[in-house]
Amino acid sequence: MTRPTQLQDVAAIVVGASAGGIHAMMQICKDLPTNYPLPIIVTLHMQDMRDSRLAALFQHHLRLRVKDAEDKESIRPGILYFAVPGYHLSIERERVFSFSCEPPLHFSRPSIDILMESAVDAYGANLMGILMTGANQDGAAGLLAIKQAGGICVVQDPAEAEIDYMPKSALALQTPDLILTLAEINALLISLGDHHVH
């Protein structure tokens, strides 16, 4: 059956951000319940430190379960996964994570483009991509791939973004389904969860 992707069709959410991304992520994940029906997979550019404390930091503030993605781990709903520094994070067709050490893309490893483009191969149209604040064009091509596959694309309103380069780069390549503030993205995610609870 061929019809437009709707909220209830979404099977995974992939998110990218760089400078200002921690704060933005906190805002959009606020109040998501422990039994959230979807996986949320995030690539945030960080200084290349070996041990990211992102998962612990977020777990402290969120009810949703938070963890670092691990190589060959099956992706499950109700978990917020972070890419670890130093490795690209991809999603395989079998919906498991894979790591790789290919050279950085847009000076970034992990790269948002790599996460989003591989997510398209795994989820096709059943995907929502969100791109937020950042001083880097990484993610713009990945979000375009989501759009071309028929998934739902959300870009943070550049007027609100701490650094508008990343959202503007995305907007230069496409007109996304939604341009939203962080509070609105948060509301959307909550409503997305409600759509899945039947």
Partner: peptide
């Protein structure tokens, strides 16, 4: 702020591309 419902509706109206879901 628009409510979650309003955003969701706006989204469903905006989807015009055909996709295999």
């Amino acid at each position: 702020e628009p409510s979650a419902k309003v955003i969701a509706n706006r989204l469903n109206e905006s989807k015009v591309n055909e996709a295999r879901v």
